[in-house]
Amino acid sequence: MLTFNDKGIYCSQASVYIDPWMPVEKAIVTHAHADHARPGSKHYLCHRDSANLLKLRLGSQTSIQSLEYGEEINLNGVKVSLHPAGHIIGSAQIRLSYKGQIWVVSGDYKLKADGISIPFEPIKCHHFITESTFGLPIYRFPELDEFNKDILHWIDENRHNNINSILVGYTLGKAQRIIETVGISGLPIYAHGAIANVQQLLIDDGHPLRSVERASLDMKKLAAPYIVIMPPSALHSPWMKKFAPYEVAYCSGWMQLRGARRRRNVNRGFILSDHADWSELNLAVTATEAENIYVTHGYKSIYAKWLREHYHLNAIEVDTLYEDDLLLQEDSDNAIQ
């Protein structure tokens, strides 16, 4: 029912693409990150919570239809519904069913609760398309409690030394999680403009999130210690200077590896991911009971081989445009600016 072509994942029966990377007539978008929600298509279909984020990214005139989780529509005989993926607010797995065959496109997902997005819901299907961003056994992410404890301890140390704490994380997804956690410290929180915009949009959409101050005021007048949240693109920029004295920590799943942290030239890294780690991937894939697994962006050939050998599944790797440039995306943070 689904095929992979040079524009994206295509369903010819429904004449619709999922997360296309080229402009098309009709696009279903799993979530509002830049590598999945590309501009130029005529009509977009997404979850209700993604609609305004998409408009912020793609322009307010964009034609967007939105659905609730579980709500079903019929596209030329193909029943299409969206289900929670637990990746970020509004992220959805796309379920397509036609003549008794069920396909699920997971987009990006994670199983661990993040306290913000609706948790991942396993969907039984015949064909499952999974990401493999962290599809190696070396990736084993800590639970939210552990992350909270470590980061608050670090902020406490900085506070004790009268030093500001700068936390670096993706604008949409990580930033909201970081803000919820560091808010516990009681220190004032200032956010980079891109993050402040998204935060306000989500609050206006009715999400119960902490509000933050925009970091554009004259920071030098402020007395340390306070907290600054900024996207990776602002790291090592002159903009950071006005927050001195500070310590910087980077929040990402890549922080599991020392090399990744050293490459970003930051002292501290906290492991925080909106993607599934190794055991979550395995749990998710087996929970679908699907026989056919298509592995996209990440360690796809390795992970597909593992699924074939260990679970005896019919798993193959599939090329997508967003393959392999994960590190770059992470660094340039073209999510929402």
């Binding site: 056994p137 990736y139 020392r258 090399g259 050998e309």
Partner: peptide
């Protein structure tokens, strides 16, 4: 100890690039 196939351990080693770190992570 980790019950990983040896090819997968070697792939991990290649990605991590450091044996001591790979061992710790696996």
């Amino acid at each position: 100890l980790s019950r990983l196939p040896s090819w997968l351990f070697e792939e991990c080693y290649h990605v991590v690039g450091d044996l001591a770190e790979t061992l710790s992570l696996c």
